[in-house]
Design a protein around this nucleic acid. Structure first.
Length: 454
DNA sequence: ATCGGCTCGCGCAA
DNA sequence: TGCGCGAAGCCGAT
């Protein structure tokens, strides 16, 4: 048994509270995207459970905003849950939806003494009071796991980084150390009993799901994620550097929703890309996005409490945006008009409608999409708020650190530098439709998408 | 087609 | 204390 886990690296786990070992459970804090069969986090938890000869109970929390999740997002989440239960024989509990609240969880831990409980380590400001309550009212050890990416957040950097260029050199020496093969998770030999009075399926059914937002063609699940990765490596990776910013060519990986919901782990993606026969340049370009940029987003959300609002912006950009607060906004749209994709800009409308219909938007276009909303909304603060609302509601990968950072980059120059001053934007980088036109055929894109998603 | 200026502050060298 | 430099750009000059 032990051999299987030799490559486990203990720095991916850290104690957040020392406790009496042996008797009670060990509590792990872990997030939704790490509940992935092919992921260090679950493997690590199982290793400990097997050693203790105990069942494995995974309790995860859903962010308050997920309670307003849409049918398409719910579908992805549920599939991941079922896979972990079925393939690993693990009891999977969305604990903070359970009747009785945190008290019920604490009671369960004391009574049932599962080998360990895996809760939501979240770089976000989610259910912190729950974690604190469980932590302070129990005596057993609590640990926190980070396998969101390749290098754990706290190892990569001890503070919020200024930009990619300050984080990149710190990662450079660490990636090789962490980019080793994944330990295998097996069917768990000590099956868990369902906790009495806890009916997981009825709890899930009670979720307030927005059923007006329809499901999409992109299918959830581990197999779908693996297939997407394989197709990308076989057909698109080699041309990634040239094609990634051309929405008409679809040069991107399409993995974002799978990574977000833990259908596939970034470690697996990085390994397969690394081992592929593609050129060095193509691999480097992709791994820069997958590892460095994702790590930078995680770093921001991990260290900044205001990661999903205007206050999270750097001081220089808030200063310049406020200086231009009185600049006239013309036209000025309401949230409803934006949501419906009814603006004067057919290119923008086409992006918006694709997102609403398909739950996706091309990475390059997301910047333009967000910057236009800054131009068209009453204040920068409102722009951030509206963009996050739209992103979280419609994108399959909503509520992701990458989404928050992308929006703040666009509206407020997070991780960016200042540029020539102009109206509304101040010194925040501006993007124009003409600029996009220099890179791809915007007319064709707008026409095609408006027709497809009208 | 290509180029420089725009503008801020981090991090490192000295 | 000085200096180089930075995710995706824009604009005007040459």
């Amino acid at each position: 048994m032990a051999d299987r886990y030799l490559c486990m690296d203990l720095s991916r786990v850290r104690d957040v509270k020392q406790g009496a070992a042996g008797e009670g459970p060990v509590v792990y804090w872990m997030s939704r995207d790490q509940r992935c069969i092919d992921n260090h986090a679950l493997a690590f938890a199982q290793q400990e459970a097997v050693r203790m000869r105990r069942p494995l109970v995974v309790a995860f929390s859903l962010s308050p905003s997920f309670l307003g999740a849409t049918l398409r997002q719910y579908g992805f989440m549920l599939r991941g849950l079922k896979e972990v239960e079925r393939d690993l024989s693990v009891l999977d509990i969305p604990f903070h939806l359970l009747p009785g609240g945190p008290t019920a969880l604490i009671h369960f831990l004391r009574e049932q003494r599962p080998a360990l409980v895996v809760e939501d380590f979240d770089p976000l400001r989610i259910k912190k009071e729950w974690k604190d309550l469980v932590r302070t009212s129990t005596t057993f050890p609590h640990r926190e796991v980070d396998t969101h990416n390749i290098v754990p957040c706290w190892v990569a950097s001890p503070k919020q980084e200024w930009a990619a260029r300050t984080l990149r050199p710190k990662l450079a020496g660490l990636i090789e150390k962490y980019l080793h093969d994944l330990p295998q998770v097996i069917r768990h030999p000590y099956p868990a009993k369902e906790a009495p009075g806890w009916d997981v399926s009825s709890t899930l059914r009670s979720l307030d799901i927005d059923r007006t937002v329809k499901e999409v063609q992109v299918g959830p699940g581990r197999k779908a994620g693996e297939k997407t990765l394989q197709t990308f490596i076989d057909h698109r990776l080699e041309h990634y550097p040239e094609d990634r910013n051309d929405p008409l060519r679809y040069g991107q990986s399409g993995l974002s929703p799978y990574l977000h919901f833990g259908c596939i782990s970034p470690q697996r993606v990085a390994l397969e890309v690394h081992r592929s026969g593609s050129s060095k340049a193509a691999k480097e370009a992709f791994l820069e996005e997958l590892i460095v940029r994702r790590e930078l987003s995680d770093n921001f959300c991990f260290y900044n409490q205001d990661h999903d609002r205007y206050e999270g912006l750097p001081e220089w950009s808030r200063r310049t945006l406020e200086k231009h607060a009185q600049d006239p906004r013309e036209p000025l749209y309401s949230f409803k008009e934006l949501e419906a994709g009814e603006t004067e800009d057919d290119l923008w409308n086409a992006m918006q409608k694709e997102m609403v219909s398909q739950g996706r938007m091309h990475g390059y276009l997301r910047m333009y999409w967000a910057k236009k909303v800054l131009e068209w909304s009453p204040t920068p603060r409102t722009a951030v708020e509206w963009l996050i609302k739209l992103n979280d509601k419609y994108e399959l990968d909503g509520r992701d650190p990458n989404g928050y950072v992308g929006i703040l980059w666009s509206v407020g120059g997070l991780h960016d530098r200042p540029w020539k001053e102009r109206n509304i934007f101040g010194t925040v980088r501006y993007m124009s439709r003409a600029g996009l036109g220099r890179r791809f055929d915007v007319e064709t894109y707008a026409r095609r998408n408006l027709k497809a998603y009208e």
